[in-house]
Each structure stands twice: as structure tokens, then as C-alpha cells.
């Protein structure tokens, strides 16, 4: 089986191709700026170096959030359009789970969501959820496990680690989502929607 993996939701940009259980291409860099310019040339290189065509891919694993709203959309648009055009399944993956994948202990992955809020998700060593991916006010005693993040906080966190095999193993048999209804999981309304809800209550 041939898989494409795409994650542009966080500053950690990941593009990978996995063929029959072997990683034939991996881009895994914390340089998630200008992702919209970089990602397609990287994907092109991924196919070239793996010696396959887009038409050979059986399934796409695409991170659909949480994270940077624009970042999520860039990678997810590529995954949606590719899955639609090639008529193949696409499996949504949590960015927080990707961050937690490289650990053999309970961790809580955090993304800075500003004003004291975080996107947080807890996972055990087998990537079972221990704290549902959420948008929450950060309070240290809320979470059990090692705190991991790419962002800088006023408290100590560890750098996330990627274990692509663990993610693929866990989700290999997940049902694919129809690309028309595969959408970002922002975990947060837009400010305009929040304000409208707030004004509606008052």
C-alpha cells in the first residue's frame, strides 16, 4: 500500500510517502512559514524521490487541526483536492496526536492559542486519547502527563517527536472521509462568530 502523509497545521511541516511499510520520503522540519509556497514543491519531490506518481497513492493521511487556521487549510486543501481527483480515501489526523506520537509515556500536546488559551490533547504511548483535543484556558493541574509543544511558554515543555509508523499503524484501517466533507477541525469559532454569540446572550 502507498500512503501520502501531510501536516501543515503547526510550525512543524511534515510531508511523507510510505510504501508497503517503508518511509520512502520524509520532510519533517520546524520551518512552517510560507507553507503555501513550499508545500507543493516538497510534495512533488516526495513523489519523484519515491519513484511513484500521484495516481499510485492508495490513501492520504491529512492533519486537519488544531493549529494555525491558515496552515491547516493549506495542507488540507491539497489533501481534499488530491483525494477528490484521485478518488481515494483521506483520513483526518489530529495535529496534537502527531506531536505526541514519538513518546513512550503519557503526554499532553499543547499549541499556544493566545490570551492564556491553548489547544491541548492528551495521549498515551499507544496514542489513545487521555484528554480530548480541546481549546481551553491553560491551567497546569488540568493535565496529567509530560507537557510537549513547539511553542514557547512561561513553563517548561518538551519538544514534540514524530513517530510516523505509530500514527499509520493506529489509523491504517480508519474509514476514509469523503473529501467533500473533510474539513478543518479548528476547535475554535472565528472572532466574529464568538462576538455574535456573545452579543446574542447579552
Amino acid at each position: 500500500m502507498k500512503y501520502l502523509f501531510v501536516n501543515s497545521a503547526t510550525t512543524n511541516l511534515v510531508v511523507a510517502i510510505i510504501i508497503d511499510g517503508k518511509i520512502t520520503y520524509l520532510y519533517n522540519e520546524n520551518d512552517g512559514n510560507d507553507t503555501s509556497a513550499k508545500i507543493m514543491p516538497i510534495i512533488e519531490e516526495a513523489f519523484l524521490k519515491s519513484n511513484i506518481r500521484p495516481q499510485d497513492i492508495d490513501k492520504i493521511f491529512a492533519v486537519n487541526g488544531p493549529g494555525s487556521f491558515t496552515g491547516i487549510r493549506v495542507g488540507l486543501t491539497v489533501a481534499k483536492v488530491m483525494a477528490y481527483a484521485l478518488n481515494i480515501p483521506v483520513v483526518p489526523i489530529s495535529s496534537l496526536e502527531v506531536m505526541a506520537s514519538g513518546f513512550d509515556e503519557d503526554v499532553v500536546a499543547l499549541i499556544d492559542a493566545r490570551r492564556g488559551y491553548v489547544f491541548a490533547g492528551g495521549y498515551d504511548k499507544d496514542l489513545n486519547s487521555t484528554y480530548k483535543d480541546s481549546y481551553v484556558l491553560f491551567e497546569k493541574n488540568k493535565f496529567n502527563g509530560k507537557l510537549i509543544s513547539f511553542d514557547n511558554f512561561s513553563f517548561e515543555t518538551f519538544k514534540p517527536k514524530l513517530d510516523l509508523f505509530k500514527i499509520i499503524l493506529k489509523h491504517e484501517n480508519d474509514d476514509g472521509v469523503n473529501p467533500h466533507v473533510l474539513n478543518p477541525n479548528y476547535l475554535k469559532l472565528t472572532e466574529a462568530e464568538e462576538k455574535r454569540l456573545y452579543d446574542g446572550r447579552n
Partner: peptide, 24 residues
Amino acid sequence: AYYGGVVPEIASRMHVENITIVID
């Protein structure tokens, strides 16, 4: 129209929801 003008983040969100449907 609810917001009295185009809200950029909402516009972006709707584009990504609709793009493959419109291509099809």
C-alpha cells in the same frame, strides 16, 4: 450579510468547505 460585510476568516473557512464540490 449577518456581519454587515465580508469576514475574512469566515470566507476562508467556507472556501475550503466548498472547493472540491465546486470543482466537481
